[in-house]
């Protein structure tokens, strides 16, 4: 393989934008972002691509490569089919700004609505490793928003008004399971964050570049906590008798 053919989405609206074809010299080990940089440097300097670290840690270069949500800096050219052009599109769930750049600000606005970390004012701040192992997985999140992009509730059904999406569910799980946090977000989780909207089809987990088990370790445990509170009469009686939350 001496060169690769890329078809990159160009435009400022999805209706009027179109794929433009480029031929890029292949270098062993190159990733899709390398090819996009070559296009910027040699063909179209105005190609809009958001990127920063090129090491799969900043979460900036999210796009859809051959229709799959991926980080372009982590997608090696040699992992893609060689007999067809590589098609690169912007994330579909967010408003398009230009070419491969989308407006992901909704995620940050929704995040502000999550009740923040709330420790007891007399907490001793001693924590054990077993209490925070779970949370450390969630803190690997790089906020690439690929999970938000692939979530069909946001992507296909447009329910940003009712469901916070996988990334923010992980954020809520991180707070809810924190050994030093005393705030109860169960009602918020059910009513405002809309955890019940998730039908656990696990696409968020499939696309996560950090390998976070978003559904199994984050969303399902949160759903179970909501069940404890709202759908389990035995737990309700237990809480009434024991006085526990």
């Amino acid at each position: 393989m001496s060169e690769v053919v890329l078809q990159v989405f160009r435009g400022t609206t999805r209706e009027q934008g179109e794929l433009k074809e480029y031929r890029v010299p292949y270098v062993e080990g190159m990733v899709v972002l390398d090819a996009l940089h070559y296009i910027q440097a040699n063909y179209d300097g105005d190609l809009a691509v958001r990127w920063n670290c090129k090491a799969a840690k900043c979460g900036s270069c999210s796009a859809e490569v051959n229709g799959k949500p991926r980080l372009t800096c982590k997608t090696r050219i040699d992992s893609l089919p060689k007999d067809e052009p590589i098609r690169v599109y912007p994330m579909r769930a967010f408003p398009l700004i230009k070419d491969l750049v989308t407006d992901v600000s909704w995620n940050y606005e929704a995040k502000k609505r999550i009740p923040p970390f709330t420790p007891d004012k007399n907490t001793d701040w001693i924590m054990f490793q077993e209490d925070i192992d779970r949370l450390q997985e969630f803190r690997k999140c790089i906020e690439c928003f690929l999970c938000q992009n692939v979530c069909h509730i946001l992507r296909d059904h447009g329910r940003k008004d009712a469901f916070f999406g996988p990334r923010l569910m992980i954020k809520i799980a991180e707070l809810e399971m924190h050994p030093k946090d005393i705030l109860d977000r169960t009602e918020f989780l059910r009513k405002e964050a809309g955890v019940g909207f998730c039908n656990i089809t696990k696409c968020c987990t499939e696309v996560c570049p950090e390998g976070i088990h978003i559904t199994d370790n984050g969303i399902i445990p949160l759903k179970e906590r909501v069940v404890d509170r709202y759908f389990d009469p035995v737990m309700w009686i237990f809480r009434k008798i024991s006085g526990r939350k």
Partner: peptide, 22 residues
């Protein structure tokens, strides 16, 4: 088909009407 696969649209995209398991 809700959804059939990741990044594949279901047959019915119910804009603003999807209620999931609520």
């Amino acid at each position: 088909w809700s959804p059939p696969a990741c990044a594949v649209r279901g047959l019915k995209s119910r804009q603003g009407k999807y209620t999931g398991e609520t």
